[in-house]
Design a protein around this nucleic acid. Structure first.
Length: 741
DNA sequence: ATTAGGCGATTTTTT
DNA sequence: ATCGCCTAAT
């Protein structure tokens, strides 16, 4: 029997209430993961077969961790339990069932970028000008209506203005094209199962019978489609347990609907609600600050959070000159933290609202030799060179995948340019044939030169060749052979720039990733590999075994905890963020985001703001975030004593200084690098030299000036220089030919 | 007529 | 860092 000694009464009740709907409102740090883990272990221990349990988590990483803990409690039998993200479990379900919807099981999964490319292609097909109608705006809108489960027909009928008409037209055509490509986008992974369930009652009833116990984590961030999916699945037995916290809902922009949690009682009549209010994570001070802040939001479920933990130290507010100063001051605090306490680099996280903010922090950490790892940013699997190789593999798996074919038809360059591609595309579209299938038979395509036809044919036969080879060798060998034949690595090597070196690294890493995947399971298929990489988030790749400071957005920080947390950029317009383009600036959601950040901290919380910050390529004066006033000043100690950037004791002496640059690979693998041992240091280029803030310089036309700010790296380094004659100028260092005085 | 390569502008949060 | 536009080269 499972021992429940180390759980509190509310947790125990949540674990043991196995019949009927249950909602657990779990404040931050209240042990909700423990509840989920124990609840599943409990179900298994009272005889529920693991394969009749489905548990939906927010990240793959969380799923993996929980699965591990469950295995520790009940052993190997837990492996038949379905646990994962909505997207990955739906993809799995669709692998079994998609033929009923007219898809083949080797379907491709399109990420946001693939989907945008398809939308652009549809728009050009429909003659909708992209200058007038922003493809991303159309994409966003389509995603939103899909999450609302509105069909193209309904959208067309409901279109109220010109924009909506265009959206409906693109949406209609987009779905057709997806199906022609045997492809699905992220939204489809949810929509298709719902469609399947509503049109095939027997299938629904089979799955209802199978998954008698349903658990959902982070319920506050489910969208309407996910809600409907769950409602259908739970309809028969109603053994549904949802866990969430309305105060931590931060994905409204992605369609998350907080009503799912607020309306639970109405939707699941007779359901039980349990509150977990004891916090085991944070100090009294941190919890109090978080609580004061979140109370400024209206319309939430009432909670009385409390903790037995010690009072702890005050929250520190760093008031900084600019983002560079912010980075320096945080660096120094990190050193102080490490020297004075048992804390190590890996116990520290630095969080920010936008990915762009990571740059100045990275530079500071590099200057100060602080090992760090970044979660998010430009993700590994989004990188061009990685996507290119993946596109080849996708073509092999799914020959109908025209988007992937288009990506690589002229990569590496084989002389098939945009005009030729258009002709081929037109030819294939008229005959409703996949692009790939017409490439070896180009005789009838009008207007193509002999050279182009030959290039097409050899591309076509290359794909054919590897398709045959696929039956004979392992996927690791296959990918390597393909990359070798294409000469991709050689091309990057020959180019010899640091950028191409990093591309080389990334392709190598992808290849070893495939081999690793290959070795890690019995029968590794390319389909499985591609599905997995389509659905990984960057947090999933986050490797916690390295001793490094973690940099991440507040969104990625969800569900995590750290002894020391820094939250940067507490400035109006940044946190809360407002953007002129979108009207839907939701201050309450921004407040929840800050709340999520604060409550990640166990012992120490340090927040920061800068007076000056580069935003949208311009240096601007920032005012303090309103959120700073919403936390009682007695909880906060303000630190203005830090040195200005020019006085920093970490500053190096030279005015021009050699900059060491790490390759992208270091970041993307999540492995921290130490500036001193970085094997990819590039000492060669003159353009790697950068200016220091405070230096006096002379410009050919503007004369004497003082460097106010330096940003960017390598060729894109920019500097703000205050000239005696003309005042402040933003210059590209590469072209400005500044002379040092 | 096509294609390749260079240059300049731009970046909210993400499965 | 990537996309799109422009121009030079073929």
């Amino acid at each position: 029997m499972l021992s429940l000694r180390d759980v509190n009464p509310q947790q125990r009740e949540a674990i043991k209430t196995v019949d009927g709907p249950l909602m657990v409102i779990a404040g931050p740090g209240s042990g909700k993961t423990r509840v989920l883990v124990y609840r599943i272990a409990h179900l298994i221990s009272i005889g529920v077969p693991p394969y009749s349990i489905i548990a939906l988590t927010f990240t793959n990483k969380a799923a993996k961790e929980m699965k591990g803990r469950i295995r520790d409690l009940v052993g190997e039998k837990s492996s038949s339990l379905w646990m994962g993200t909505f997207h990955s479990l739906c993809a799995r379900l669709l692998r079994y069932e998609c033929s009923k919807l007219g898809f083949e099981k080797n379907f491709s999964i399109y990420d946001t970028q693939d989907s945008l490319n398809l939308i652009k292609s549809v728009m050009s097909q429909l003659g909708i000008p992209t200058q007038q109608f922003n493809p991303s705006a159309i994409q966003n809108r389509i995603s939103r209506v899909k999450n609302q489960l509105l069909t193209p027909e309904v959208c067309t009928a409901q279109a109220a203005d010109l924009f909506e008409e265009k959206v409906a037209a693109v949406y209609t055509r987009y779905q057709i094209r997806l199906k022609e490509n045997n492809a699905m986008d992220f939204d489809d992974l949810l929509l298709h199962p719902i469609h399947l369930f509503t049109t095939h009652k027997k299938v629904l009833s089979d799955y209802q019978d199978r998954f008698r116990f349903i658990l959902i984590d982070e319920y506050q961030d489910t969208n309407h489609a996910q809600y409907v999916f769950i409602k259908l699945l739970a309809d028969k037995f109603r053994n549904l347990c949802v866990v969430g916290d309305d105060a931590q809902s931060i994905y409204a922009f992605r369609g998350a609907d907080i009503r799912n949690i607020l309306d639970f009682e109405r939707d699941y009549i007779g359901g039980k609600i349990i509150r977990l209010e004891q916090n085991y994570r944070s100090t009294k001070t941190i919890l109090a600050g978080a609580d004061q802040l979140i109370k400024k939001n209206g319309g939430q479920i009432n909670k009385n959070l409390w903790t037995d933990n010690r009072q702890g130290e005050a929250i520190t507010l760093l008031e900084c000159e600019d983002d560079k100063d912010e980075g320096e001051r945080i660096s120094r605090r990190i050193f102080a933290d490490i020297q004075s306490k048992k804390h190590d680099f890996k116990h520290i996280a630095v969080m920010y609202r936008t990915n762009a903010q990571s740059r100045s922090l990275e530079e500071a950490f590099r200057r100060n030799s602080i090992p760090y790892t970044i979660v998010g940013g430009v993700e590994f699997y989004q990188r061009k060179e990685v996507k290119d190789v993946l596109a080849y593999l996708r073509c092999l798996v799914n020959p109908k995948d025209n988007e992937s074919v288009l990506r690589i038809i002229n990569y590496p360059n084989r002389g098939i340019g945009a005009v030729s591609v258009k002709k081929i595309l037109h030819y294939a579209a008229q005959r409703v044939l996949p692009l790939l299938s017409v490439l070896t038979e180009t005789k009838d395509i009008g207007g193509l030169s002999e050279k182009t036809k030959n290039a097409c044919a050899s591309f076509g036969s290359l794909v054919e060749k590897y398709n045959k080879l696929r039956q004979q060798i392992s996927i690791g060998e296959l990918a390597r052979a393909l990359v070798d034949e294409l000469g991709i690595l050689r091309i990057y090597k020959d180019e010899g720039t640091s950028e191409s070196m990093s591309r080389w690294d990334n392709v190598q890493e992808l290849l070893s990733g495939i081999s690793e995947f290959d070795a890690s399971r019995e029968k590794a298929t390319l389909e499985d590999f591609l599905q997995e990489v389509s659905l990984v988030a960057d947090v999933d790749r986050w490797d916690t075994s390295f001793n490094a400071v973690t940099l991440m957005t507040l969104h990625s920080a969800k569900g995590l905890e750290f002894p020391t947390v820094f939250i940067t950029g507490l400035e109006e317009g940044l946190l809360p963020l407002y953007t002129p383009q979108f009207e839907n600036n939701d201050v309450e959601e921004e407040r929840r985001l800050f709340y999520v950040g604060i409550t990640r901290a166990m012992e120490r919380l340090c927040i920061s703001r800068a007076h000056l910050r580069f935003r949208y390529g311009d240096l601007s004066y920032q005012t303090p975030s309103r959120f700073l006033d919403e936390i009682d000043s007695s909880l906060i100690v303000i630190d203005t004593a830090g040195a200005s950037p020019t006085q920093s004791k970490f500053r190096t002496n030279g005015i021009l200084r050699q900059r060491k640059r790490a390759t992208r690979t270091d970041r993307e693998t999540g492995s921290p690098y130490f500036t001193d041992v970085d094997p990819h240091v590039d000492y060669t280029s003159d353009e790697e030299k950068i200016l220091d803030v405070g230096s006096l310089v002379e410009h050919e036309y503007f004369g004497r000036g003082k460097v106010i700010y330096v940003t960017g790296k390598g060729d894109t380094t920019k500097a703000v220089v205050d000239f005696d004659s003309v005042g402040r100028k933003n210059l590209m260092v590469k072209f400005a030919r500044l002379k040092l005085l």
